[in-house]
Simulated scan of single mutants.
Amino acid sequence: MPTDSPATACLSELQIRLVARHEEPRYKELMAQHHYLGDLPKIGETLWYVATWRDQWVALLSISAAALKCGVRDRWIGWDFTTQYGRLKLIANNSRFLILPDWHLPNVGSRVLSLMQRRLSGDWQTRFGHPVLLLETFVDPSRFHGGVYRASNWTELGLTQGFRRTRAGYSQAHHAPKRVFVYPLCRNPKVLLTQADRAQLQLTGKPNIMLSAAQMRILPDFFNDIADPRSRSGRRHRLSSVLSIAAAATLCGMKGYKAMAGWAKDLGDKALGRLGCRRVNGQYVVPSESVIRDVLIRVDPAVLDGALQKWNAAFAPDDKCIAVDGKTMCNAVDDKGHQTHIMSAVGHQSAVCHTQKKSALCP
């Protein structure tokens, strides 16, 4: 604790910066020693910050990927399942906040949060290629009241349901619910997180992939038995690869041929290899929008639906209820001039479309 400076001067001299690589062992040691949850591994999109006063370490923060599911947050934003998967990376989680023992002074916590909030989106854009629009954090009410977040103008949304994320999914038993706080890093984050025009978000970098490496590797196998409707001349991409990219892009929230092609173009080499893309001169070649459109228009829809049903049977979450709904496709008529009617079966819990069928004529 500084003894040669008033508290106000101490606050004005606080600075915050990213933890350098050679400082990470010290960061982890202090977090493990003083934070009640212990150390947190640096996995995926994560930034570590240290607040300093005249080169002395004052506080530590960890900002990581957002929680996959949070009911009060998702209802507050107002997004649907598909939009959430495409935009979840625009939310970051303040997963650790530790004020070191000698620095429990008035207003230090809110000052450190304020400094972090000012620079986070820029740091995230530089490191990961996309901005952050919203911050979230979870506070254990049995230990803390969340006063430092309220003092920093965070909004409390409510309580979680008390489930914990495990390697097998989510725990069955309820644990202590956490208070959920959010802080906007831009104007109208709810509008930006739910808007239809993804281009306005200026998203760059790698796309969200909601499939494991093993699932991506096995996905082309589900399409190997489908007959290729294209002529042999001019084929540049295997049918199973094109269908795998279209299916994977759809599972990750992409809608339309252009979005599928753009999603595939942003994939890394490992993902493209798993999806069966071919290499030319040491680089993977990605199907274009026109290739994806041509394949999906020509392929037998009944056979494709059968392959997708096998995928759902193997990997889709179990659903307690199935919703059956129908709609008339605009500007789509059959060879007899009748409009096309589609019936879909969608799982309530998973929001997965298990199958779609062309229905009989409506009376």
Rank of each mutant, 00 (worst) to 15 (best):
Q349L: 14
K327R: 15
S350Q: 05
T52K: 04
V132K: 00
V72K: 10
N312W: 03
A65C: 13
A345C: 13
Q349T: 01
T160Q: 14
D55Q: 14
K89F: 09
L37Q: 14
G347E: 07
Q283D: 12
K336G: 07
V303D: 03
N94T: 04
G158K: 05
C353N: 13
A323Q: 05
Q161R: 11
N208C: 10
R274P: 00
W48Q: 14
R167I: 01
L133Y: 10
Q56L: 05
S288Q: 04
T137Y: 11
K178I: 02
H338Q: 12
G78H: 06
K89R: 15
L61P: 04
L243P: 11
K28C: 09
S212Y: 01
L272I: 02
G306N: 13
E24R: 07
R21I: 14
L30H: 09
H237F: 10
A360F: 08
D225K: 06
F181P: 01
P101L: 14
L105R: 15
L113H: 10
R73V: 11
Y257R: 10
I209G: 03
L18F: 00
L308T: 08
D4Q: 12
L185W: 05
Y27R: 08
Q339Y: 03
P189W: 06
G262W: 06
D318P: 05
R279G: 11
G129S: 08
R165H: 08
N331C: 11
P317W: 05
R75P: 08
F97I: 03
D39W: 01
A313Q: 15
V148M: 12
S152V: 02
E29P: 00
D123Y: 02
R238K: 08
R187C: 02
Q339I: 04
W263H: 05
C70Q: 08
A332E: 06
D74M: 11
E136S: 07
P141L: 07
